[in-house]
């Protein structure tokens, strides 16, 4: 019984850490795909930022790699 309870706590801690790391990552990905970050994802999705970033910073990306 105790073992399964501690196991549950461990699982929760692990999942909590995952959520903490993943939610902002997901948010930043979404922010990159929204037309207007301020109005949120419900507004509309777009790929225009990706193109813009690539045009402006392709050289920098290559250099880093």
């Amino acid at each position: 019984m105790l073992k399964s309870k501690t196991k549950l706590i461990k699982l929760l801690v692990t999942q909590g850490a995952c959520a903490f790391l993943f939610v902002p990552t997901l948010q930043s990905v979404l922010a990159g795909l929204t037309v207007n970050y301020f109005r949120g994802i419900s507004f509309d999705l777009t790929l225009k930022w990706i193109g813009k970033v690539w045009r402006l910073y392709a050289d920098s990306v290559m250099l880093s790699i």
Binding site: K10, L11, V13, T14, G16, A17
Partner: peptide, 10 residues
């Protein structure tokens, strides 16, 4: 605390 708990569990 968090990393050890999660690391051991995984």
């Amino acid at each position: 605390l968090i990393s050890t708990t999660a690391g051991l569990f995984l």
